[in-house]
Simulated assay, not measured.
Amino acid sequence: MNRTKGLSVLLLFIFSALLLSGCENNLLVFDPQGPVAREIMGLINYSIVLMLLVTGVVFALFIYIVWKYREKKENMDYEPPEEHGSTLLEVIWTIIPIVIIVALTIPTVKTIYATEKVPKGYEDQKPLVIHVTSADWKWIFSYPEQGIETINYVNIPEDRPIDFKLTSAGTMQSFWIPQLAGQKYTMAHAETQLYMVADNPGSYVGKNTNFNGRGFAEMEFETLVQTKEDFDKWVKEVKETAPQMTEKEYEKKLEPSHLGRETFSNTHLEWVDHSDHNSKNYLNPEMYDRGHGWPGKIFEDKNNYKNRLKDSDGGSRHHSGSSTEDSHGGEHHGN
C-alpha cells in the first residue's frame, strides 16, 4: 500500500516538474505567426497528445498490476504455475506498436509534404526569393531580384510567400525561425529550399541549431516582418545609401568570426554561388585553433581560392585573425 502511494507521488512530482519547466521557458514553436509554423505546431500537439495517451495507458497498467499482484498476508506462500505464454497476448503487444507508428507516420508525412510547397491560399502570389548562405558564424541573406544583401538580419514583407534557397560557404548549419517555419540544413555545394509566410509584422528570432564550434551559441539573426510599404521603402533606402561589397571583402567576411549587422547594395552572387557543385571552397581550417595548439587539419584542395596565391608567393599565404574576435560591420538599414 505504502509503495503504491509512494509511486503515485513520484509520478505526480515528475509530471508537475515537466509542466512547470515548460511554463518557465519561452516555447516559440507554440506561438506560430504563419501557416507553415501552424502546420508544424499542429503536428507537435498531435504527437504530444498521442504520446501522453500511450504513456497514460502504460502507467495505468503498471500501477494496476503492481497493486493487484502485490504481496499480501494471504498469498505469502503462493507459487505461480508454469506458464507457456499466450499467443493472443503476443499478437496484441506486437500490433499495438505498429498502430502507434502508423498513427505518427501518416500525419508526419502529410505535414512534411504540406510544408514543401507554397502554403495554401498563397499559390497565386509570386514568392520573394532570398538566398541564404551560412558561414562560421554568421548568416548572409541575398535578394537577387532587389540586388541587395544583408548580414545577420533579414527583412521580409508580411502576407507574401518567401522562398529561402539555403546553402553554406563551408561547414553544415541548420536554419530555423521557430515562429515562422521549420528548420533545414545548409550544405556547401548543395541547395535546400524552405517556404514560409509571415502573418503579422514584428521581429522574430532565427538561429543555427547545428553545433559547429565555439561561435555556434551566438549565431543568431533577426527576421523583421514589415508591411509591403515599409519593405519597399527599406529596399529603396538600401539601394540608395548602402555601400557595395567587393569579392575581397566578402572572402574576408567568410573567415571564422562574429560580425555585426551589415547591409550592401549588391550581392555576392555576382561572383560566387555556393550551391553550385563547382563553386570555390571557402573553408579556413587553419583558423579554428581552439587554444590547444592543434588547429584543424589543412586539406589541400585545388579548388580552394587561397591556393591561387601559392604560385605568386611560393607557398600558402598565412591569414591572420581569430575566431574569438568580433567584427562589427556597417550600418543596419533595417529595424
Score class of each variant (00 low, 15 high):
K72P: 00
W137L: 04
Y64C: 02
A217L: 09
E220N: 13
Y69F: 15
L53G: 11
E71P: 00
G334R: 09
N307M: 10
L269F: 11
H131E: 08
M172D: 07
W234R: 10
L50V: 12
L89W: 13
L12M: 13
R160I: 05
K228S: 11
A169L: 02
P107W: 08
K302P: 05
K207R: 14
Q125Y: 15
M76Y: 08
E39S: 13
E220G: 03
Y185I: 10
V36K: 02
W67Q: 11
P144R: 01
K73M: 14
Q173Y: 05
S134A: 14
E240L: 07
S265W: 11
L269S: 08
G315M: 08
H333V: 01
G260Q: 05
N200D: 12
D136R: 09
G121C: 06
I148A: 06
I130H: 02
L27H: 12
L27N: 11
E251M: 10
Q33K: 15
T192Q: 14
G321H: 02
E300V: 13
F211K: 10
G291Q: 07
A135F: 04
C23A: 13
F13A: 15
N278H: 12
L180N: 01
M287A: 07
Y64A: 14
V129Y: 05
G296L: 14
M187Y: 11
T55H: 07
H189Y: 13
H333Y: 12
T171F: 03
D136G: 02
N200P: 04
G206Q: 06
I151H: 00
F211M: 06
E262N: 06
Q183M: 10
L43V: 05
K306V: 08
I130R: 05
S279K: 14
S327M: 01
Y250G: 07
M245G: 01
I63R: 13
I106E: 09
P256G: 04
M172C: 02
G296M: 15
S312M: 05
N25G: 04
T246F: 07
Y288D: 04
E222F: 03
E262A: 15
D326V: 10
L88F: 13
E116A: 15
M172V: 06
D326A: 05
K126T: 10
Q179W: 01
T186D: 03
G260N: 10
W176P: 00
N266E: 08
P35D: 11
P32E: 15
G22L: 15
M41K: 10
F216N: 06
S257H: 14
M187S: 12
L269C: 13
S168R: 03
G170K: 01
F299L: 09
I130P: 00
L283P: 01
N266P: 04
I92A: 15
L10S: 10
S323N: 03
L7R: 15
W294C: 09
L259N: 06
V132P: 00
L224G: 00
I48D: 07
V272E: 08
A60W: 12
F13S: 15
A169T: 05
G34W: 12
N284I: 02
F141P: 02
H319V: 10
R308Q: 15
L269E: 05
K207G: 03
A37T: 02
Y282M: 11
L89N: 13
L28T: 06
F13Q: 09
